[in-house]
Nucleic acid binder design. Structure first.
Lengths: 176, 176
DNA sequence: CTATGCTATATAACTGTTTATATAGCTGGT
DNA sequence: ACCAGCTATATAAACAGTTATATAGCATAG
């Protein structure tokens, strides 16, 4: 992102597409943030006329901005806690009177994960097919975006496995 | 949580331990939240003297609170986006002049994940060993907390696999 | 006896993020 | 002609969450 000059609107689109739901941001967060970064000298801005609608405010990284980016990467991976909302729900599943309701919950979760998995496989296939010049791997501008996809696939697969094992364990407990 | 009467302090401890870093909350978030839930009739509160320090404000779920919990579960799993900070960093790794810096980044990430995996295996082993009365599975009060652990293990394993594959791909690209 | 750490609650300040709303003009369909 | 949908920016209000700070008493280690 911001490797090439972009407006807030472009950035939003790239965020949504490229990071495949591993990070998102609303325009109401992006626009003030870009202004803040411009004010502290990390970005430069120039206006462009738009064919439709208001002028585009196009941002470019400054030398200072680039330095800060390199520092951010040099600090190493940010491995803070990863929040999974539905796990807090799973925790409360033993409060249910009818144990079959817990099973339904897990089956619903599994169905969602399978749908998502199939969607990501499709996106991944599209990325890989596009360029036959590199039989061993993708060019740089596709390699790094594809890494986020590859992790997504592995993690969702692991989650589906967990759903299956949990459903099996729950069925045994119900005595079904 | 809140299956049994608890103070904000208890809740924090249980959150941290039981959800194994899949969810956390600070006391400064918990205390006002409990007051809010008491005000809207979801919780009841009574004070207890404490052996050390100020009185304990102990909360219990009300009938209304229990209903709301059941509705929350009946709505199905909350499968919102899962944010992974380090993936946004991976995305920018192709900005680095020296490709070996990208490799170091991935190796640092792998080391962290391996450490975390080994820690979770230990915790999981401790949970399973404690009760020999159930040879096939755990009692209810351990089964549900263990599910969060089981998912954590599968996901971290998947992440380590991804790190290994990525490191391999990166090495090939460098020509090492 | 002093420092550290634990139980226990509370608030202020700040940052991050989402939802809702507004404006403005262009494009394509019915 | 009208409506829906897209590009494009902007702000207000609300909500979520963290960091810092304060108070207070007890226990334990050095």
């Amino acid at each position: 992102m911001l490797s090439e000059p972009q407006s807030g609107y472009d950035l939003k689109r790239n965020f949504d597409q490229a990071l495949n739901n591993f990070w998102s941001a609303e325009l109401s967060q992006i626009y003030p943030q870009l202004k803040k970064m411009e004010a502290s000298g990390l970005l430069k801005c120039h206006e462009e006329e738009s064919a439709s609608g208001p002028n585009r405010r196009v941002y470019t990284r400054s030398a200072k901005g680039r330095l800060e980016l390199l520092e951010w990467l040099a600090d190493g991976p940010q491995v803070g806690e990863e929040r999974i909302s539905y796990l807090t729900q799973v925790f409360f599943l033993n409060e249910l009177d009818d144990k079959k309701d817990g099973l339904s919950f897990m089956q619903e979760l599994r169905d969602y994960m399978v749908d998502r998995y199939e969607y990501l496989v499709e996106v991944d296939g599209f990325l890989r097919k596009d360029d036959p010049r590199y039989p061993n791997d993708l060019p740089d501008d596709e390699f790094f975006p594809q890494l986020t996809l590859a992790l997504g696939l592995k993690r969702i697969k692991a989650t589906i496995e967990w759903c299956d094992e949990t459903i099996k364990r729950m069925k045994t407990r119900i005595g079904d």
